[in-house]
């Protein structure tokens, strides 16, 4: 995000060809610094997004995640305008937006209107910031769709530190957060503070969004934060299994997306979103296929 001047969304033309030997291909790929950084940051972001995404899906807060990423866009645009690193603007705005949403809507299930109002205002502000900025539109473009191939080593470090903080916080609050997410009223009766856990969760979404924006951008944040988790929710009967599945799908899709994009002249974020969406569709098809098989089986018996 810091080296925003050279926005290379699409892989520079390279002469390397896919050789069907994955290890030698990977070796070639990782000789390039930008590829190495992309894999490093992409993996960290995918792990964090996979974990927090599972709670987002359990709490049905995907709109909040969506809104916060857009709020982050406004923050980043504002930072660019006053000439500081966009990631700081992103952090500041997503964090304060998260707290605001948490305060306005106490219960997770009834938040969408409050989120909508905050989102609309923030996007309006974003439009203003962009119109005031006289630089190149590519910066806004990279914020919207991600810039995974333009990540510097210092950004990888920031991402790693933020990722560790988020993961540790989530590990500490794992059970209370799970309790509140699955069974809000009982958790409240047991003395857990829905309000403070809600705020904390919003802050964690905000932080995770800020680092994920580098990889998939503001508009495609769902591809790492919601879709893998939605797949996991369909498959897992235990929360721990859900978390593992969610993380695995997010990481694998990011790796595969990066791998493919090295050979094809199309954006990485497209490949990542396409892969997770494809898996989601396949998982949703399973019950239909199972039912169809059951019907056939039953009809044969008569």
């Amino acid at each position: 995000m810091a080296t925003i001047t050279t926005t290379t969304m699409i892989m520079p033309m390279n002469n390397t060809m896919f050789s069907f030997n994955i290890f030698s291909d990977l070796k070639t790929m990782l000789q390039y610094d930008f590829m190495l950084h992309a894999f490093q940051a992409g993996t960290i972001v995918a792990i964090v997004a996979g974990i927090i995404g599972y709670f987002i899906v359990l709490r049905r807060s995907s709109f909040a995640a969506h809104a916060l990423s857009h709020v982050g866009f406004t923050g980043a645009a504002g930072a660019v305008l006053i000439g500081i690193n966009p990631i700081f603007g992103l952090f500041l705005f997503t964090m304060s937006g998260g707290v605001l949403i948490g305060i306005l809507g106490r219960k997770a299930e009834s938040r969408d209107v409050q989120i909508g109002t905050v989102l609309a205002f923030m996007l309006g502000l974003g439009v203003l910031f962009i119109s005031l900025y006289r630089g190149y539109a590519t910066e806004a473009y990279s914020l919207l769709f991600g810039e995974i191939l333009g990540i510097s080593s210092s950004n990888v470090l920031i991402t790693l530190i933020a990722g560790i903080i988020i993961a540790v916080a989530l590990a500490c609050f794992y059970r209370p957060l799970l309790f509140v997410s699955l069974d809000e009223d009982v958790a409240e009766a047991k003395g857990l503070s829905i309000f403070w856990i809600g705020i904390l969760f919003m802050l964690l979404i905000a932080a995770a969004t800020s680092i994920a924006v580098q990889v998939v951008g503001v508009l495609l944040i769902f591809s790492l934060m919601v879709t893998p988790a939605a797949i996991a929710e369909r498959l897992a009967s235990k929360p721990t299994h859900g978390l593992i599945i969610s993380v695995l799908i997010a990481v694998m899709s990011t790796w595969l997306g990066l791998f493919i994009s090295f050979y094809l002249p199309y954006p990485v974020s497209f490949f990542i979103t396409a892969i997770v969406f494809l898996i989601y569709i396949l998982v949703r098809l399973i019950p239909y296929i199972r039912n169809l098989a059951f019907q056939k089986h039953y009809q044969k018996q008569i």
């Binding site: 059970r175 209370p176 309790f179 699955l182 069974d183 235990k238």
Partner: peptide, 23 residues
């Protein structure tokens, strides 16, 4: 309040009664 399509198994909900408050 849980999702009516939730695939989470019943045992996990019962377990939260024991450990739901623990860090």
């Amino acid at each position: 309040t849980f999702n009516s399509e939730s695939m989470i198994e019943a045992l996990e909900i019962v377990r939260l009664g024991i450990n739901g408050r623990k860090m």
